[in-house]
Simulated scan of single mutants.
Amino acid sequence: MAGFSTSFEAMNMPYRIGFLLGSLTGAGAEKTILTLAKNLSALGHSVDLYLLDTHGDYPQDGGINYIGVSGNKKTAKRQHLRTLTKNAGYDLFVTSRADFYGDISVVNKYCSVHITPTAWLKKHPLKFWKYPLQVRKLKRKFSNKRLIALSKGIKTDLVDHLGCASDNVMIINNPFETDRIRALANEPGAIPDGDYIVYVASMIPRKRHTDLFHAFSQLKNQRVRLVLIGQGHLKHELEELADSLGIQERVDFWGWDINPYRLVKAAKVSVLASEAEGLPRAVVESLLLSTPTVSTDCPSGPAEVMTGKLADYLVPVGDVDALKTSIDRALESYPDIDQDRLSRFDAVNVAKRYETLIPCHN
Results as ranks from 00 to 15, higher is better:
325 T>N: 15
172 I>C: 07
70 S>D: 10
99 D>R: 15
250 R>H: 15
155 K>F: 01
12 N>Y: 11
314 L>K: 14
134 Q>S: 05
227 V>Q: 03
129 W>G: 08
283 V>H: 00
247 I>W: 02
200 V>P: 05
330 A>P: 02
359 P>H: 11
226 L>I: 14
187 E>C: 10
34 L>Y: 01
162 L>F: 07
205 P>C: 15
80 H>F: 08
116 T>H: 06
276 A>D: 14
105 S>A: 10
14 P>R: 06
356 T>I: 07
85 T>N: 11
265 K>S: 10
63 G>L: 09
179 D>V: 06
136 R>L: 05
110 Y>C: 00
337 I>Y: 04
266 A>D: 05
109 K>Y: 08
310 L>S: 01
126 L>I: 06
326 S>H: 14
246 G>Y: 05
159 V>G: 06
83 T>G: 08
265 K>G: 07
247 I>L: 01
351 A>F: 03
196 Y>P: 12
8 F>W: 15
168 N>V: 00
192 P>N: 02
149 A>G: 04
151 S>G: 03
254 W>T: 05
302 P>N: 03
97 R>I: 02
144 N>F: 10
346 D>Y: 12
353 R>W: 00
115 I>R: 09
134 Q>W: 00
128 F>S: 09
137 K>S: 06
33 I>Q: 06
56 G>N: 09
242 A>S: 07
178 T>I: 15
356 T>W: 12
44 G>C: 09
157 D>Y: 09
237 E>G: 06
253 F>G: 01
74 K>I: 11
277 E>V: 07
210 T>I: 11
56 G>H: 11
151 S>I: 00
90 Y>H: 00
255 G>Y: 10
222 Q>N: 12
105 S>D: 15
129 W>S: 02
272 L>E: 01
335 P>A: 04
181 I>C: 10
131 Y>Q: 09
166 S>F: 13
297 D>K: 09
71 G>Y: 03
41 S>Q: 10
